[in-house]
């Protein structure tokens, strides 16, 4: 089943075309890798899908519904949540508060009920707290739950960024370089966690530079260069694609070395 589809998605910034005529499909339950050299337009694709800016041309279809040009918060309501290349957190709050804040969509907040009867929401709040702790457990942050988000080390901040996205309970998770700035050990842990998330039935699109992560996790890989899709296929097919090697991977040895 096709979950997400883009049709002739194009974005121009003045004279520069960051993404041009992009057609991609993401099936339910898949992990799709989006790779390409720096400046290939990968993050722009995320920004277009989540409507952080409107496309110049083309459409984004999610579950058969055209969601082009909806506000970012509406996109999240539809079930697409993204993380950011530079970690964004609610830094001055504790780790668990970060996740609680992000549960807005599933909290079914009724302001008047809550305002007039402060105790009526106790049990619901308890359920939300439990859900938050489950997410933190999944992302290995449970021990750190009372620390301030801004004081966490980089690797944990990346995990928290994903926890925040997960707490919305999306159907499609867009991860923008989840292992950036991590050492090989941390990278491996993060890979395992992403695999765990995928095992819960989540569909994931992943931008990543670390080939080991991409090759290890993704069922399918889409390669961008100068805003165009130059190849698409299984990791094996991508490794063997000469155009990809030329544009991105460089010498064939690079893959083997990783």
């Amino acid at each position: 089943m096709v979950l997400l589809q883009t049709k002739n998605l194009t974005k121009s910034f003045g004279g520069l075309t960051a993404v041009s005529d992009l057609n991609i499909k993401v099936n339910k339950g898949e992990i799709v890798g989006l790779i390409g050299p720096n400046g290939a337009g990968k993050t722009t694709v995320f920004n277009l899908i989540t409507s952080f800016f409107p496309p110049t041309k083309g459409n984004v279809i999610f579950k058969g519904e055209d969601i082009t040009g909806l506000k970012p918060d509406k996109i999240a309501k539809k079930g697409i949540v993204r993380t950011f290349q530079l970690t964004r957190l609610f830094g001055e709050y504790s780790v668990v508060k970060n996740v609680l804040m992000a549960q807005h969509l599933r909290s079914h907040m009724n302001f008047w009920l809550e305002f007039l009867m402060p105790f009526s929401t106790r049990s619901r709040e308890a359920a939300l707290l439990q859900h938050a702790e489950e997410i933190l457990n999944l992302m290995g942050l449970y021990e750190k739950r009372n620390e301030l988000a801004k004081n966490l080390p980089h690797g944990h901040q990346r995990s928290l960024g994903i926890s925040i996205a997960l707490s919305v309970q999306p159907e499609l998770l867009l991860l923008d370089e989840p292992t950036t700035g991590m050492n090989p050990e941390e990278s491996k842990t993060m890979m395992q966690r992403i695999q765990n998330i995928a095992d819960t039935g989540m569909t994931i699109v992943l931008i990543e530079h670390d080939m080991k992560v991409v090759m290890g996790l993704c069922h399918r890989i889409i390669v961008l260069n100068y805003g165009r899709k130059i190849a698409e296929g299984t990791p094996q097919e991508i490794i063997e694609n000469s155009e990809v090697i030329q544009a991105y991977l460089g010498v064939p040895d690079a893959v083997a070395k990783n």
Binding site: T50, F52, K71, P72, D73, K74, A76, K77, V81, R82, F84, R88, L89, F90, A102, H104, L105, I164, A165, S167, V168
Partner: peptide
């Protein structure tokens, strides 16, 4: 930006 991305209008 983060608030918007997690569905807060």
């Amino acid at each position: 930006n983060l608030a918007e991305s997690i569905g807060i209008s």
